[in-house]
Amino acid sequence: MTGRFSGKNAIVTGAASGIGRATAHRLAGDGANLLCVDRDEAGLADLLSSLGGSHAALTADLSLAQACTDVVQTALRHWDRRIDILVNAAAILIRQPILEHSRETWDLTIDINLKAPFRLARDVVASMIEGGIRGAIANVGSIEAVLPIAGHAAYTASKGAVTMLTRSAAFETAPYGIRVNAVAPGATATGMNADLRRDDPDRWREMLSGTPMGRHALPEEIASVIAFLVSDEASYVTGAVVTADGGWTLH
């Protein structure tokens, strides 16, 4: 297959749905070889059949450190030690008011949204440096790191951390030709907010009223930013957090 990612090996986490799934389609459509990672085994099987080609999938619970290690080791074995691209799209959002926030919910959110991207990026960077591969990593942050939403404390903390994970990892890896960037989406229609859109459409509309474009993003509109960031088109872009929010943070 030809395309701007032709011959590139890419890991995409959270690939079974939402932004991760759209990113998998976008990268595969431009020629990348994928290792699709998610905890949703059926969702991964469905993704692989919709992608066609010879992509790989791995069912993994990224809240576990060992699972992160397994993802990178599997990719290195599968691709003869060459990983070119990592997209950290897996994330969870559990709504809980601050005064009632449980430790369990906090830890699970931090483990999946922050520690997993850290661990995966760390191990992928190590392999890139070892192999002299000038690769690219994209993280998914959130505009909520800057404009928080009540009830999203752990998610907000994790996404603020992802912003600085992106910037500080970019700083350290730049001398090796490795780029690390992030996209900060606004309201995007994914499984993360499917319940809200279904059960409380007024609340969702109220959120969108704060978006100058007056609509939510489709996952594909975030995936296209990620695809740009991990492509050679963005060869001088590193440590950037690209806002894709329909104008939410303008006011």
Partner: peptide
């Protein structure tokens, strides 16, 4: 370091980026 990068401190910078954001959501709620 909640905003700018220094070498050899990715976990620290991440923690401070998270702290700055959680300060905002604490203030909001």
């Amino acid at each position: 370091e909640d905003t700018i990068a220094y070498p050899d401190q990715v976990p620290y910078a991440s923690s401070k980026g998270g702290l700055l954001s959680v300060t905002k959501v604490l203030a909001l709620e």
